[in-house]
Design a protein around this nucleic acid. Structure first.
Lengths: 249, 249
DNA sequence: CTTTTTCATTTGCATATGCAAATCGAGCTT
DNA sequence: AAGCTCGATTTGCATATGCAAATGAAAAAG
């Protein structure tokens, strides 16, 4: 651990000391300053740097470990954990994976791509100024050659500039974004709608057939990353989640 | 705190002491032995009873407080918390409340009730032996007089025997169960279906119109409590949830 | 060169101690 | 009787200390 890394840990003086330490390290992780795999300074180092007792430092780190942000092992030390790949309900983050888990072969086709200023309707969906630059993609995912889900997505270019140089020929945008961005907030909305004629034709279903519409938006802190609209043919899909009253199981 | 209450706290000798204490108290709460509002013995009492230091007892209780199972206040002491009324996505546990939050007037009508052995289809939905006794209810909820959602529910009588003497005239079964049972596990499934003719007539929508189907089952430990099927007219309803990668926000 | 042993580092757990903050209630004052 | 003060109870936070467990790395043995 270089001194530049440990120096990044600074306290804000608000509230209990152990919680200041916890938040300071959490924020470094969430901001991406310490990406997954980074070594967190050992308790002794933090203890001297922050002028706290080891018990207090330990308390902060133990709590972060319970929250899943870090992984600790005796002697090897503490490293920043990889964000959990999926979480509770609705984490159909990766469509290829979702299809693979059904035992079917995945493929996809990009129907359209347009980069530029967001048209009014898209800007509204993103709660974004109309001057913002976005990449706008429409694509169709297939399972064993049959249409699986229709995706319509905008990506905020200011947040993820690399997107302009990416063709998504290898990896669909959902999976690509998981590798190239860090999200701290997501919002899902689920509703049932009737398929519009164009949508029905693409999905090879009857116009007006019930479909499950999943709309998801994600942010990093306050910055929008992406908004996506996934249209699943009804009946063939259900989303299942298990919960306990005190959290997802 | 009577001696009978503190004597209920027994350790199993497995793993760290603070975690034994944490689990012992958690289990008393989840089993319903200490219902919400019960006073948890003060740290000093537990410390003597369990022959642990106050810091160790504190550690267990502080963690339970973070998990939301207990509420602690200086001087007043510690009490068992009420389970969070709603949690994350899809906790449309109370339909009257859901309607109230939309600013509409709630009412409901019981369409049918039959108690007895579960028919084959219901038993399957419950993953329950066909010999089990269940209460089977069908009801329609209204918002401002308009059909809001169609509910079809079975309740496992062995788990909640009081159900046979309850007419649900005052409180719909979902809300009634929240008061008369404690759940530790729930499963949701969401899908989009077309309304069947009878359903469409009840909900005053067109046959074949897209509907959001929410199926929920709940258990206490391994014992089934209830299974319910909620059919919402599509378009008029969406379910929204906000998440962070490390848990619901 | 490979295997084994030993050592040092790092985290995990438990305890004892001291003080601070909140607040319920009893007793006192007015 | 109403309001106030003060003390006792209970939780919250931080520290110092000691030992145990895991394990990576270096040293020793073969």
């Amino acid at each position: 651990m270089s001194s530049t890394q440990i120096d990044a840990v600074t306290l804000d003086g608000a509230g209990p000391l152990y919680d200041q330490i916890r938040r300071a390290i959490r924020d470094l992780i969430l901001a991406g300053t310490w990406p997954p795999g980074t070594a967190v300074p050992p308790e002794h180092a933090l203890m001297e740097k922050l002028d706290a007792s080891r018990m207090t430092v330990h308390r902060a780190l133990a709590q972060l470990a319970r929250e899943g942000l870090i992984t600790r092992r005796r002697r090897s030390g503490t490293i920043v954990a990889s964000p959990p790949a999926s979480h509770a309900m609705l984490d159909i983050l990766s469509i290829p994976q979702e299809v693979g888990e059904l035992g079917q072969a995945y493929s996809c086709r990009i129907l359209q791509r347009r980069d530029g200023k967001a048209p009014r309707e898209l800007a509204a969906r993103f709660e974004l100024g109309r001057s913002a630059n976005v990449a706008h993609l429409t694509l169709l995912h297939f399972a064993d050659g049959a249409p699986h889900v229709l995706e319509d997505r905008v990506i905020h270019i200011a947040t993820i500039p690399q997107v302009v140089d990416e063709s998504f020929a290898q990896t669909p945008p959902g999976d690509w974004l998981l590798k190239h961005s860090l999200w701290t907030q997501a919002e899902h909305a689920i509703s049932a709608v009737a398929a519009e004629p164009e949508e029905a034709e693409l999905l090879k279903i009857d116009p007006g057939a019930p479909c499950l519409l999943v709309e998801r938006r994600t942010w990093n802190q306050a910055e929008p990353i992406t908004a996506v609209r996934l249209l699943y043919p009804g009946g063939r899909h259900r989303f299942i989640g298990r919960f306990g009253p005190y959290g997802a199981v």
